[in-house]
């Protein structure tokens, strides 16, 4: 694919999907709190963004300025890199390389680095605690995340995301590997620190890694976080729900529907499920998700044989 086209494609996908995530978030919030008037869900994200763009930026005493700026930028960049490995429609992909799913996993595990840098840079207590939390969540979720993701490559006999989608022509991976998608979604919440796993910058830490930022810095941070959520939802749709495969509708529309469906599920969880505690998250990762993910690997390996 032409590099310029690729940059434009990824840019458009990120802008549109981040806006949709914000709209869904507002709509779910309205629904859950019993309010009415979904029309404002379309405009509320824009006015929120405008308010943040006009807000004054705060600074701390002697921050590690470069790391502080690099954090959000790296987070957004990683979301873009992760999106390149996913075909959006038959033949429409930026880099459907032979080891595409490893590229996605590598990009997502670097999210830890971006968040730790962001928390470290502020030179303040709550952001640093948020950074430590991200390391703990990321390390306990990382292995089950990689395992369930790599398991989808077993029936495809290829690490390329395009081949993984093509292998789901008859039956989707969500039916073939029923354990995979739930584990993937829980760990995805951890890596996008969204919903019940919004621990690194959760409200219980007064904003955690984003406690000391405001204005455009906060806007960029939220956009980057939403784009990580989108890339995780897109990979979930591609690896477990057959990506662009589906009857009647054109492929790209199926991809959007599935991606936004998974994103909506994760966003919904944030408004309905209480935030988990750190201890229970680490315990869940190591003692439940990891063995379950191993069972997933063994069972689908045996079935493929």
């Amino acid at each position: 694919m032409n590099p310029l086209v690729a940059v434009v494609l990824i840019g458009v996908v990120m802008v549109v999907s981040v806006y949709l995530v914000a709209v869904i978030d507002t709509a779910v919030e309205t629904r859950v709190s019993g309010g009415r008037g979904y029309a404002r869900a379309w405009l509320a994200p824009i006015s929120r963004a405008a308010r943040l763009a006009l807000q004054r930026r705060t600074v701390t005493e002697r921050p590690d300025a470069e790391a502080w700026v690099l954090g959000p930028a790296l987070l957004g960049g990683l979301a873009a890199v992760a999106l390149t490995s996913i075909p959006f429609a038959p033949g429409v992909d930026v880099a459907d390389i032979p080891a595409g799913i490893v590229l996605f996993g590598a990009a997502l595990l670097q999210v830890m680095v971006a968040v730790v840098l962001h928390g470290w840079g502020a030179n303040s207590v709550f952001p640093l605690l948020g950074a430590f939390r991200m390391a703990a969540v990321g390390l306990s979720m990382g292995i089950p995340f990689s395992l369930v993701l790599i398991t989808t490559a077993i029936p495809a006999e290829s690490l390329s995301v395009g081949a993984i989608i093509a292998s789901q022509e008859g039956v989707w991976n969500v039916l073939r590997q029923p354990i995979g998608l739930p584990v993937y979604l829980i760990t995805a919440l951890g890596f996008s620190f969204w919903g019940p796993l919004q621990l690194p910058d959760g409200a219980d830490l007064a904003g955690g890694t984003s406690a000391e930022i405001s204005g455009t810095a906060l806007l960029v941070w939220r956009i980057a976080r939403a784009s990580i959520l989108v890339s995780l939802a897109a990979m979930g749709a591609a690896a477990f729900l057959g990506g662009y495969l589906g009857p009647w509708l054109p492929g790209w529309l199926w991809m959007i529907v599935k991606t936004m469906g998974l994103a909506a599920l994760m966003i919904w969880s944030g408004h309905r499920i209480a935030r988990a505690r750190m201890e229970s998250v680490v315990l869940l990762g190591w003692t439940v998700l990891l063995p379950v993910a191993l069972v997933d690997v063994f069972v689908s390996g045996a079935l493929t044989l």
Partner: peptide, 21 residues
């Protein structure tokens, strides 16, 4: 050596975070 390169990057994300901490 696409796989090796990506695995190296994947491994180091966790290891270097532990190192920083």
């Amino acid at each position: 050596a696409q796989f090796l390169g990506l695995i190296l990057i994947l491994m180091m994300a966790g290891e270097m975070t532990i190192m920083a901490i």
